[in-house]
Amino acid sequence: MALPQNLVAEFNELLTHYPHKQAALIPALHRCQEELGGWISPQTMEDCAAFFGLEPVEVYGVASFYPMFRMRPPGKHVVSVCHNISCALRGSDELLAKVCEVTGAPVHGTSADGRFSVNTVECQGACANAPMFDLDGVYHEDLTLEKAARILGEVK
């Protein structure tokens, strides 16, 4: 296996921004996560290791250090619930419980049917419209429990 051609081309360009090629690993892993199944698979680690002149275990060391890299495949939809102060004051605990209930996924886990993964995240910069979650990259703000259930119900 090897990295897809579009990523190789992108990474070759990416390398020109850094003094050492290993330094480009983190942005490259973000792109891999976006393009290759939403997580950093062992195959991705091996392919990136080969590309960046590292050992697979070194790529693992980097990927596992940062919480934004997923080390397990996520569900089809990813719900990231903010739990920082503004959202917490406006009921993010209840929101999170509701999200788990509707999706059937545990916090930092994936539902048994593989449809949903649920995370908590730090401030997403939407405090004025707390509470909020990010569903597959789209912000949903001023959430009530009913609104949240409806939004999640619609993607089901």
Binding site: P42, E46, A49, P56, V57, G61, S64, F65
Partner: peptide, 16 residues
């Protein structure tokens, strides 16, 4: 060998 994770969750890793 490598080391994965962070803080109290740091663990030794044997290959990928």
């Amino acid at each position: 060998y490598g080391v994965g994770g962070r803080g109290a969750h740091t663990t030794l890793r044997i290959g990928a």
